Simulated assay, not measured.
Amino acid sequence: MSGTLYGIGLGPGDPELMTLKAHRLISSARVIAYPAPDTGPSFARSIAARYLPETVREIPIIVPMRVERFPAQEIYDKAAEEIAAVLESGKDVITLCEGDPFFYGSFMYLFERLSGHFPCEIVPGVTSLTACAAQLLRPLTSRMDILTVIPGPLPDEDIRTRIETAQSLAIMKVGRHLPRLKALLAEMGLLDQAGYVERASLPDQKVSRLADVPDGPAPYFSMILIYKGDEAWTLPPSFSS
């Protein structure tokens, strides 16, 4: 009998936002896998670090942090082979994933390679989307509002089209695209309605009006939230002009 592949959502960064189920599985893990950059520590591992058994076997999936196409297919092919060997031996593999495994989560690349051959279980996590709304202190969406999630690297015209048909929207993966996105939102008259959150739930998080954020690259873990629906929701007074 083969082991089970678990995709564990860790939440946005604060270990206290992990679910009880995620905590239970991580605390009893024999083998864990997690994404890691080629320089510096793994963010996913750092969230779960305090709960890892001392004897746990670790399988870091080293993913170069580059502008080029992500993910590198050969990296996940190799990781899937290593994890498959563990599963074939009858051991479970607990795969750590920031946020939620199926919401822009790196775990999905392992899932597509292994789910047809081994039992899989997904443990959902608090997403960055809801974590950022909580830190901004403004509801995300309501009733018949259309919520649109937009990757920041999309071309301006694609982003404009999606913004025009949405009542609530989140722009993710802001990073180096921050100046361009600010200029586009200013042109559309939405800059004063836009909130900005980076590193939500972490000790060094920043929450502000987007208009007050200096131009320049933003961290990868940053998000712009805009509400333009029928509710009278504005940015909290501490963020408003």
Rank of each mutant, 00 (worst) to 15 (best):
R69I: 11
E164T: 10
F43V: 07
D212Q: 11
E88D: 12
C97W: 04
F102G: 02
M144R: 13
V86R: 04
M188F: 02
R69C: 10
P237L: 01
T95L: 10
K21R: 15
S241L: 11
A133I: 11
V93L: 07
A183T: 13
V207H: 14
D156H: 06
K21F: 05
A131V: 02
L184F: 05
R143E: 12
F118K: 11
S115H: 15
S222I: 08
G11I: 00
H23Y: 13
F102P: 03
D156Y: 02
S201I: 06
L225E: 02
S238W: 13
L235W: 08
L10M: 03
A194V: 01
V123E: 07
P124T: 09
M108Q: 14
G175F: 06
E16Y: 05
E187V: 02
S128A: 15
R45K: 15
L147A: 05
R57M: 12
P139C: 01
D212S: 14
S89D: 09
L137K: 14
R180C: 13
L20G: 03
M65R: 08
R162G: 00
I159S: 03
F103M: 13
T141Y: 10
L190S: 02
D192H: 12
Q205H: 12
T39N: 13
A134F: 11
A79E: 13
